[in-house]
């Protein structure tokens, strides 16, 4: 790089990283994973489940460790603990006077702590840092297959039940009134969340998968009033973030997970300031022109 980042020409800026096989793999996997999280994000934003996304992605950690120790696919362990944590949240909320946000915080930190303890006791082969911060450049091939399978499964489920899920987020009482199985949709969304959390944590880690599940949906929410566009923008911004993020991580030698999420955050800030209808500058214009 000759120590000079600015003088390299644009052609080699783009082609040099993809000359490496591990970089091509990292880019494709990152795009796949962030797209799935982005698609799910559009539903979580509308359902008001940002905190639930946070909770589930942390709560899957002990499941990952137990699955590793038992030699079963990590996704199964993650799924059991992800859905289990939400069931527990529902149970405690229902049976006590504690408010929901407190219950969520309480349960997911408990699960997370259990994960840390299990890692320290059961196995030293799982690197805690990998689970927390992800390893998009070094996902083993068996995990790649699993990641692809889970990603397609989630996209398939979200596509089939797309309109029902939208109705469930918007007006669950109407859904129930016309005979749609609301608790099925509830658990379907949770299942997808747990599955997305487990594929996401392999790429960017538990801490940052939360951002991938929240930020793209929030960005899209500022840019459109149409449900279909919301999902499309959410997925597009996720893909763009992955590409830019991975390239930045290569050229600036920074952590790829953090870099991807940071780009997502910048895209959000851009929308927050300049969105045609809901950006803060637009709001100011409307206020001053109405005077």
């Amino acid at each position: 790089m000759d120590g000079s980042f600015l003088t390299i020409d644009i052609n080699s800026f783009i082609t040099e990283p993809i000359a490496h096989e591990f970089m091509r793999k990292a880019i494709l996997i990152s795009i796949l994973i962030t797209s799935v999280c982005g698609l799910l994000s559009s539903f979580l934003t509308l359902k008001g489940w940002a905190l639930m996304g946070d909770a589930v992605s942390h709560a899957v950690m002990p499941g990952v460790v137990v699955a590793y120790a038992l030699g079963v696919p990590l996704s199964i362990g993650a799924f059991v603990f992800g859905v289990g944590s939400v069931a527990l949240i529902g149970f405690i909320k229902h049976k006590s006077r504690i408010k929901e946000d407190t219950v969520i915080g309480l349960v997911f930190t408990g699960f997370f702590a259990l994960g840390i303890v299990l890692i320290s006791k059961i196995t030293s082969e799982i690197d805690l840092m990998h689970i927390l911060y992800g390893t998009p450049l070094g996902i083993p091939l068996s995990d790649v297959k699993q990641t692809i399978f889970i990603s397609f499964l989630v996209v398939l489920l979200l596509s089939i039940f797309r309109k029902d899920l939208m109705l469930y987020c918007f007006d669950p009482r109407h859904a129930k009134t016309i005979g749609i199985n609301v608790s099925f949709l509830h658990y379907l969304l949770l299942t997808c969340l747990s599955l997305a959390a487990v594929v996401g944590l392999q790429a960017v880690g538990i801490v940052l998968v939360v951002a991938m599940l929240i930020t793209p949906g929030a960005t899209a929410y500022l840019l459109t009033d149409k449900f279909d566009e919301l999902s499309i923008i959410s997925v597009l911004s996720s893909i763009i973030s992955s590409l830019i993020g991975i390239y930045l991580s290569y050229w600036l030698d920074i952590a790829p997970g953090g870099s991807i999420v940071l780009v997502q955050t910048f895209i959000f800030l851009f929308a927050f300031l300049f969105a045609p209808r809901y950006g803060i500058f637009k709001v100011k214009q409307l206020l001053s022109s109405s005077k």
Partner: peptide
Amino acid sequence: YVPQNEGIDADFPVNVWDIVMMGRYG
């Protein structure tokens, strides 16, 4: 069921057509 106006998320990205179509989902 026709909800109270307060019970509706007015920021939800749907238009009149989308909402009326929800009446046909069943």
